[in-house]
Design a protein around this nucleic acid. Structure first.
Lengths: 199, 199
DNA sequence: TCATATTGAGAACGTACGTTCTCGATCAAT
DNA sequence: ATTGATCGAGAACGTACGTTCTCAATATGA
């Protein structure tokens, strides 16, 4: 048996490739990045790339899945540092604000990918939906103990802030969503909780 | 002077072309639609298309601008039918809900275009920002007379509803945003308006 | 050392797209 | 009727991309 690639090497390659893909796809848009660009950035021969992922689309989906796990893990870690349940809800928007302020922030990677490739790549639509469902569940678990009637509104405030911050490159959208969340929490806590249930 | 194209014909061509572009770009994504597809759909020779718009990018921008005018005009027309200022705020979400329920709804065309081409086409980023600024101004004019402290929150609820409805193809996001808006209006009207001002 | 399977680097392939060009047909002015 | 500018239909051009293939170099087992 001559020169074979170890499992450990595959794992390193995979990480380098996904790192490069995540960075380039997010910064430039997915279709604007070619497989040769990924090869240069990851420092991997094309042959290894295609052994790790059979198509570009599979690589995109894997990149979105890994990013989803890290994104939600980072959020959960931040929320875990805030003991008070009500303050913890507001901390969601502090974390979002820090994300928005990162250099190169360009909105939600899943929304961008869905807008770009959703119509032609169902697997990418599903990745975006899966991420949004998971984020929604996170917000639900966060808000339900404090003000269950405000859960959906606070989730929509977060989604709205992400979009607005992404398009205008305006991190302050997080503070505005945070203020709205405070108003909703106050309202729910003052016996007017029923106000968010009707149609 | 032999066979010249009249100004009136140019106007008809322009409309047919923008109609085709708006439909195809929105349904399939911009980069997935080629100039030949537009030629077939609009029934125009390529030469006329390139006389109307020098590049595909110019056509995209013109399409977004026309859509912006129509979209905001339709919204304004709907809001004008509601006399009560508070009900008029809620009517925003009824109109959004009807939009979400249209067959083929696929989220915000400007967010999609920005996600797809923003990094490589500054003119498209600017078109998206311009539309969002104008929509924000519309919401501000709508909410300010009723509950100025809730303006930003209600705007973010609307943006959040559009994204969520687009990704999950779930028109009910409008009803959830509407419920949140009602809670915010109630809170602002009950002497707790200051709650949405702090940070 | 020799044989062999596998690798890396990149050329090659097929396709698709944005844009321009060709060319016979068409129509207004004379 | 003749001329000549302009048109429509689509071929052509140049480029770029996703994917596959070539082939010399390499490293391993006998």
């Amino acid at each position: 048996m001559p020169a074979a690639i170890t499992e450990e090497q595959q794992s390193l390659d995979r990480r380098a490739l996904l790192d490069a893909a995540e960075d380039l796809f997010y910064r430039q848009g997915i279709q604007a990045v070619g497989m040769d660009d990924l090869r240069s950035a990851a420092g991997l021969p094309l042959k290894r790339i295609y052994r790790l992922f059979p198509t570009k689309e599979a690589l995109i989906v894997a990149m979105l899945e890994r990013r989803d796990l890290r994104w939600r893990g980072d959020l959960a870690a931040h929320l875990d540092t805030v003991p008070d349940p009500r303050e913890r809800v507001l901390a969601l928007f502090d974390w979002l604000g820090a994300w928005f302020a990162e250099p190169g922030f360009r909105g939600c990677a899943w929304v961008n990918a869905h807008g770009e490739l959703g119509p032609t790549a169902p697997a990418i639509t599903e990745a975006a939906r899966s991420h949004k469902r998971a984020f929604h569940a996170q917000v639900t678990a966060l808000v339900n103990p404090v003000a269950p009637s405000a859960t959906e509104s606070i989730y929509l405030l977060a989604e709205g802030a992400i979009v607005v911050a992404g398009i205008h490159n305006d991190p302050a959208a997080a503070a505005r969503a945070r203020a709205g969340t405070r108003a909703l929490l106050d309202a729910a806590g003052s016996g007017r909780a029923g106000a968010a249930a009707g149609g």
